[in-house]
Design a protein around this nucleic acid. Structure first.
Length: 639
DNA sequence: GGTTAGGTTTGG
C-alpha cells in the first residue's frame, strides 16, 4: 500500500485483532491487526476534507498476507490537499505545513551527526519569527534558499520545543519549495523534489507574503555586491563564477573567481603548485586583473571540494581584508610591503552570519546576473591568452525608433546654422517639413575642402539637422555620412547611442564610455586609402564598437534540456557577418530561415548535433539553455 | 523514522 502523506486516513476491515508479542519491547499498542482470510480490505482517504469524504481509493481484495501489505493504491491521481498553519498557530508535536519569508538562513553545513544541516528563520503575517532546521544527507535535498527575503513553502515539518522557542524540523517525506520573494517575481519554485503540486492557492499565498513582506522592511540592506564595489574591512555576499581552484592545505582552499567586474583595489596574488590546480593555471593578463582569489577555511573546505570550475557560486559573508595577508605555505608577491593596497578575500570557518558557499542552479544565474553581466562572464574567449579580451562596454544595437528620436532631438536642440568649421565647405539644403503645418526646414551639409580639392566630393559628408530617414537616403549617394550637431558653437557628434557613421546600409557605433569624440579637420584626406570606418573612428576620437551576433538556443533530448549560447561561432554557423545582420534585411532573413528550419513555428523542434568540444564545454558548465529565440546583435569592444 | 542545530565574525 502506498501511503503518500502522514495525514492519510486508513480504514481496515476484515482483519483479526490479536495480542502483540512485542509489546514489552517496543512499547507500542498491546494489540495487532492480523490479516487473515480473503475478506480483508484497506481504504485510504485523504483529509483534510471536512466532512470526511468517501474513500478515494479502495485496495484490491487481499488474498494473501503479503499481497495485502503490498497492494497498490491505484487511483491516487488526485493531488493531496494541504492546509497551512500560520506561524502563530504552531503547537509542539504537530506535523505542519507552513509558508514563510526567510529572514535568516545558513547554507547546508555538516552537522556533528550524520547529516548536513540547513537552518532558516522564517516569519509571516503573524510577525512570529520561527527557527527551522532541515537535516539530510544529500546536499540536493536541502532548501534552495539563496537570499534573505526568499519565500519558502514547508511540508511536513514537526514543531519541536527547545530552549524556550519553537522550531520546525523536517520529518520523513518533507518538502521545501523556495520562491523569489520580490513582488512580481518569478513563480517558478526552486525544489529538489521530482514532483510537487503548485496550484492557484499556492501562488496566491506566495503573492500575499510578497506583498506583506514588501511593506515590512524585513530585509537588511543588500549584502550582495559585485567585486567592483568590494571595500576593505567589509563582509559581503558575492555571486561569481569559479574559474579554478587549488587546495592550499588541509584547512584552506583557494577559489579563483570572477564576476566580470573589476575590483577597485589591487587583488591578492596567491601562487600555488600548478599540479594541484583544478582548472586553468594561467589566464591572460587582462583576465587576471578581474580574478579574485578567495581563501575558504575549515568547514567550507569540504563543500568547496564539490565545486567545479565553471560553476556559478554565491559566497556568503565573504570578508575583504586589506593589506598583506599570510597564506599557509605560499605567499604571492616578492615584497610584502609593496602590497599595501591589495585585497584578500576570506571565507572564515564557521557558519556565523550565514557564512558559506554554494553553487547556484542555472536558472538563478539568469535572474541574478542580468544578460550583460552574463555575457561578460560568457563571452571572454578562453583561448585569448594572446591579449584581446572582451570588456564591459557592450550594449544592444538600438532599434530605428530610438535612433530616429535621437536625430529629431539633435535637430530640435540646435536649430539653425552653427558656425561652419574652417576646414569645411558648408551649406544648407531646404528639405520638406515633417508635417504640412510645420515650419520649413533645412539640413546643414559640410564637405571637407581637402577632399573636394582631391576631387573626392562624395567621400565624406557631415550632415546636421537631418532626420534618420534623410540621413539614410543621403548615405546612398555618399560613401561616408557622419551626423553632427552644433554644440556651443562647435560641430560635434550626436549622442553615441546613435550611429556615428553611415556607410551605405551599414551603420557604425562608438563606445560611449571610451570615446573622446571631437570633429576636427580630418587628417585622413591624404593618401590613396579610401576612408573606412576605422580611419574615420580614429580621426573622430571614436572607439569603434564591433558587432557581435549572439544566439541563445535551448536544446532538448530525452534526458534534459540544455541552454546554449552561440557567440563566437554564430557567424560561421549562420554564414553571415554580424555587421551584415545589423545592416540588411537579407542577412537577417537568412538567419530567420535557418532558425525556422531548426525550430519550425508551432511544430516539433529540429535537430542540432553538438560537437564533442561544444558538448564538453556545455557539460562542464552544467549550463541550461533554450529553444531558438530571436537573434540579437550586440556591440562590443575589444582592447 | 536515531542524531544533528538551536544565527551574531574580527581569524589563517
Amino acid at each position: 500500500m502506498k501511503m503518500k502523506m502522514t495525514m492519510d486516513v486508513v480504514v481496515a476491515s476484515g482483519f483479526t485483532v490479536g495480542r502483540s508479542p512485542t509489546v514489552h519491547k517496543d512499547k507500542l499498542h498491546p494489540f495487532n491487526l492480523l490479516l487473515s482470510g480473503d475478506n480483508a480490505r484497506v481504504y485510504v482517504s485523504r483529509p483534510p476534507l471536512p466532512p470526511p469524504p468517501p474513500p478515494l481509493v479502495i485496495s484490491p481484495p487481499a488474498n494473501r498476507k503479503r499481497s495485502a501489505a503490498r497492494a497498490e493504491v491505484s487511483m491516487a491521481t488526485k493531488a493531496p490537499k494541504y492546509t497551512y498553519v500560520g506561524l502563530d498557530g504552531l503547537k509542539t508535536g504537530l506535523v505542519v505545513n507552513a509558508y514563510g519569508v526567510v529572514v535568516f538562513f545558513k547554507q547546508p553545513f555538516k552537522s556533528r551527526g550524520t547529516d548536513l544541516c540547513s537552518t532558516l528563520k522564517i516569519t509571516d503575517q503573524s510577525n512570529q519569527r520561527i527557527s527551522c532546521s532541515v537535516f539530510g544527507e544529500k546536499l540536493e535535498n536541502h532548501p534552495k534558499v539563496f537570499r534573505v527575503g526568499d519565500i519558502v513553502r514547508l511540508h511536513r515539518f514537526k514543531v519541536m520545543f527547545y530552549k524556550n522557542s519553537l522550531t520546525l524540523v523536517n520529518t520523513f517525506g518533507f518538502s521545501v519549495l523556495a520562491f523569489d520573494g520580490a513582488e512580481g517575481g518569478s513563480m517558478e519554485p526552486r525544489t529538489s523534489s521530482l514532483s510537487f503540486h503548485l496550484d492557484r492557492e499556492d501562488r496566491r499565498a506566495v503573492e500575499e507574503l510578497r506583498t506583506w513582506a514588501a511593506g515590512q522592511a524585513l530585509l537588511p540592506p543588500a549584502t550582495t555586491i559585485p567585486l567592483s564595489a568590494a571595500q576593505p574591512r567589509t563582509y559581503f555576499d558575492l555571486t561569481c563564477q569559479l574559474l579554478a581552484k587549488a587546495p592550499i592545505d588541509s584547512t584552506c582552499t583557494l577559489l579563483r573567481v570572477w564576476d566580470g567586474t573589476r575590483c577597485a583595489h589591487t587583488l591578492l596574488k596567491v601562487t600555488v603548485e600548478p599540479d594541484a590546480t583544478e582548472g586553468p593555471t594561467r589566464f591572460s593578463e587582462g583576465r587576471e586583473r578581474l580574478i579574485a582569489n578567495v581563501l575558504v577555511y575549515d568547514n567550507h573546505v569540504e563543500l568547496a571540494a564539490r565545486l567545479k570550475p565553471g560553476d556559478f557560486l554565491r559566497i556568503y559573508n565573504l570578508r575583504a581584508i586589506p593589506g598583506s595577508s599570510k597564506v599557509p605555505g605560499h605567499t604571492g608577491g616578492q615584497q610584502q610591503d609593496q602590497e599595501v593596497d591589495h585585497l584578500a578575500f576570506h571565507l572564515h570557518g564557521g557558519t556565523a552570519y550565514g557564512r558559506g558557499v554554494r553553487a547556484l542552479p542555472d536558472e538563478d544565474n539568469f535572474s541574478e546576473l542580468n544578460d550583460s553581466r552574463l555575457l561578460e562572464v560568457w563571452s571572454t574567449p578562453p583561448e585569448s591568452a594572446g591579449g584581446a579580451y572582451a570588456v564591459q562596454h557592450r550594449r544592444d544595437v538600438p532599434n530605428d525608433e530610438l535612433v530616429a528620436r535621437l536625430f529629431s532631438e539633435a535637430a530640435a536642440a540646435a536649430p539653425g546654422p552653427g558656425a561652419p568649421p574652417a576646414w569645411a565647405l558648408s551649406g544648407r539644403v531646404p528639405v520638406p517639413a515633417e508635417r504640412p503645418a510645420s515650419p520649413p526646414r533645412a539640413v546643414g551639409v559640410h564637405l571637407s575642402t581637402r577632399l573636394l580639392g582631391e576631387d573626392r566630393p562624395t567621400e565624406l559628408l557631415f550632415l546636421s539637422g537631418s532626420t534618420l530617414e534623410e540621413t539614410r537616403r543621403l548615405a546612398s549617394g555618399y560613401r561616408n555620412v557622419v551626423p553632427v550637431r552644433s554644440s556651443g558653437g562647435h560641430m560635434t557628434l550626436l549622442d553615441l547611442s546613435a550611429p556615428f557613421l553611415f556607410r551605405g546600409r551599414k551603420r557604425y557605433f562608438g563606445c560611449k564610455r571610451c570615446s573622446e569624440a571631437a570633429v576636427r579637420d580630418p587628417p585622413y584626406a591624404e593618401g590613396e586609402e579610401p576612408l573606412d570606418e576605422k580611419a574615420l573612428a580614429a580621426a573622430l576620437g571614436v572607439q569603434l564598437l564591433q558587432f557581435v551576433l549572439l544566439m541563445k538556443l535551448e536544446l532538448q533530448d530525452a534526458t534534459d534540456t540544455l541552454d546554449v549560447f552561440l557567440w563566437r561561432d554564430a557567424e560561421s554557423f549562420f554564414g553571415v557577418s554580424a555587421e551584415d545582420v545589423a545592416a540588411n534585411q537579407e542577412a537577417e532573413n537568412s538567419i530567420r530561415q535557418k532558425m525556422d528550419s531548426l525550430c519550425p513555428a508551432g511544430g516539433s523542434a529540429g535537430t542540432v548535433h553538438l560537437t564533442d568540444r561544444a558538448a564538453s564545454v556545455c557539460s562542464q558548465r552544467e549550463e541550461k539553455i533554450h529553444t531558438p529565440s530571436t537573434g540579437r546583435s550586440f556591440c562590443c569592444i575589444y582592447i
